[in-house]
């Protein structure tokens, strides 16, 4: 395990804040995008792309890179903002998001954006693909690790559990799944739309290693991901308890902000909430 200094935690938290700023601005300006789920996943993506994963933004096709699959493809802007921040492409390009002829689709397209491993958006399909990458990697004797982020609404799909059963059967210990458990989906609380609890018990009963964390606590996220990578003979899921719309006062925990872009006035408030209005902030 790497040492995790307070300084490193603060660095990562600052990056996550910048990613959130980029995310709300991009979605607001485009008038489209799933802002609530992008904000809940931001700390997880920051931990992966800035601390945990072996990668090289200059060589997005590097054979031995760790892989990340955004199975909850609706979180595309969060991922784009993360990749931009990490140097995969210029953040300026995100101004085209959601517009005609843009590489930045509302759900990510592997053939258009460097760093996107597979196109996702039809829920649950990313997890199966991530498992396929993991099984092929093992066949080839590759040492890299595969990370896959799923959503809680997405966990209502049967395919998630087909993949869960198969990954455990194959003892795919080179696969780590992270559940962005923000508890809210398009029409309301997950517990009211279609309860997935006790979701940790479900994964345990599918023979997965299960870790539960606060998905906004950077130290907990990184500790859990590093723990997951060490586990042998079974796959691991990190159940990250998160808040939909995290960081923006009026969005937090609200289903209304699943897929609604903030207007200009709301954006201004969001940027204040996120501390993006400070002098010298690139996103002010």
């Amino acid at each position: 395990m790497s040492s995790l200094s307070e300084q490193e935690i603060r660095r990562l938290e600052e990056i996550a804040r910048r990613i959130r700023c980029r995310t709300v601005r991009t979605i607001s300006e485009a008038g489209v995008g799933h802002v609530g789920g992008c904000l809940s996943e931001a700390d997880i993506l920051t931990a992966l792309y800035f601390h945990v994963m072996k990668l090289d933004p200059q060589r997005p096709d590097w054979d031995d890179r760790d892989r990340f699959v955004l199975s909850k493809g609706h979180g595309a802007v969060g991922l784009y903002s993360t990749l931009a921040e990490r140097g995969y492409f210029s953040p300026e390009l995100l101004k085209t998001f959601g517009r005609i002829n843009s590489a930045f689709q509302v759900h990510p397209d592997m053939h258009m954006v460097p760093g996107i491993e597979i196109s996702t958006g039809a829920l649950a399909q990313g997890l199966s693909a991530a498992l396929g990458i993991a099984l092929a990697a093992r066949l080839d004797g590759k040492a890299f690790h595969v990370y896959c982020l799923i959503g809680d609404g997405e966990s209502q799909e049967g395919q998630i559990w087909e993949a869960a059963q198969t990954a455990a059967h194959y003892k795919a210990d080179n696969l780590t799944v992270i559940l962005d458990y923000n508890g809210v989906q398009l029409l309301g609380p997950v517990s009211e739309i279609m309860e997935i609890a006790p979701v940790a018990d479900k994964w345990r009963s599918f023979n997965w290693a299960v870790v539960e964390i606060d998905g906004h606590d950077m130290r907990q996220i990184i500790t859990a991901l590093e723990f997951a990578e060490e586990i042998k003979a079974r796959p691991c899921i990190v159940i990250a308890h998160t808040t939909k719309g995290k960081g923006v006062s009026y969005m937090e925990g609200k289903a209304a902000w699943h897929g609604k872009p903030p207007n200009e006035k709301q954006l201004a408030q969001a940027l204040v909430d996120l501390g993006c209005d400070r002098a010298g902030d690139a996103y002010g």
Partner: peptide, 16 residues
């Protein structure tokens, strides 16, 4: 479990 099978195949194709 054919749906997962199709997706796993896609992931394997990504690996060549």
């Amino acid at each position: 479990a054919e749906q997962n099978m199709m997706g796993v195949a896609a992931g394997m194709a990504l690996m060549g």
